[in-house]
């Protein structure tokens, strides 16, 4: 079943077509990867799906509900979580407090509950702590709970950012280059974590540079170049697609672009 359905999605930045007429179906319970050379529009596409950018054309449907142009705090509430290419964390806070922040969107108690310490408030705080700890256990970093986020190793930081996203209880998790900057060994661990996430019933969207990781993980791959779809299919089909090979060879000569 299709969880997220994208039709004709486009985003123009003052003349530049960062994403142009893209169609994409993300199937529930699967891993869908988006690949392409630098500047192909992968991150822009993610930003459009998560509501960080407002598309200039096209539609995004999630669970058969139109979420086109919906702002991020609502897309998260509907069940879409994301991580960033450069790991973003609340750096001065502990790992646990970081992950607890992910519970904000699922919390119902108001400032009055907090002031009056109503049963609802206490119940919710306990639930939040349990859920946050569960996310830490799941990502294998429970031992770091009281450490300051900025002081833990980079690999742990990346796991924290995933735990933070998981704490929002998403149905669709968008991971933007989760393995960037990791060693070969750490990447293997991350691939396993992503498999665990899917086994847990969460659909994953993945932007990734490492072809080995994408090819072994993804059920479906969308290839973008210059904001346009050039291929779409199973890993085996993509591996032999002449247009993809062409784009990747050409990409060696292309300039680096921030939008990538």
């Amino acid at each position: 079943m299709t969880l997220l359905e994208v039709r004709g999605l486009g985003k123009h930045f003052s003349g530049l077509h960062a994403v142009d007429d893209v169609d994409l179906d993300i199937a529930e319970g699967r891993i869908t990867a988006i690949i392409g050379p630098n500047g192909a529009g992968k991150s822009t596409l993610f930003n459009l799906l998560a509501g960080f950018y407002r598309p200039t054309s096209g539609t995004v449907r999630f669970h058969d509900r139109d979420i086109t142009g919906m702002s991020p705090h609502r897309t998260v509430a509907h069940g879409i979580a994301r991580t960033f290419q450069t790991t973003k964390l609340f750096e001065d806070a502990t790992v646990l407090d970081n992950v607890l922040s992910g519970r904000i969107v699922r919390s119902r108690s108001t400032v009055f509950d907090a002031v009056l310490r109503t049963p609802r408030h206490r119940r919710e705080e306990r639930l939040n702590l349990d859920k946050a700890m569960a996310a830490l256990e799941f990502t294998g970093i429970a031992g770091y709970r009281d450490e300051i986020a900025a002081s833990v190793p980079q690999e742990v930081q990346k796991r924290v950012s995933i735990a933070l996203a998981l704490a929002t209880e998403p149905q669709l998790l968008l991971l933007d280059e989760p393995a960037a900057g990791l060693t070969e060994e750490e990447t293997v661990g991350f691939a396993q974590l992503i498999r665990d996430i899917v086994a847990d019933g969460i659909t994953v969207g993945l932007v990734e540079h490492r072809m080995s990781m994408v090819m072994s993980l993804a059920d479906h791959i969308l290839v973008l170049d210059h904001g346009k779809e050039i291929a779409s299919g199973t890993p085996d089909a993509i591996r032999t697609d002449p247009q993809v090979i062409e784009a990747y060879l050409g990409a060696d000569h292309a300039d680096q672009e921030g939008a990538g």
Binding site: V76, K88, F90, I104
Partner: peptide
């Protein structure tokens, strides 16, 4: 001590990240 404080501090630290975890 509450989630409200967590929300406000999240905004202070990084508005982008706060947005990505569903903070209005």
């Amino acid at each position: 001590r509450s989630g409200i404080g967590r929300t406000l501090v999240a905004i202070r630290t990084s508005e982008d990240l706060a947005r990505s975890i569903g903070v209005n």
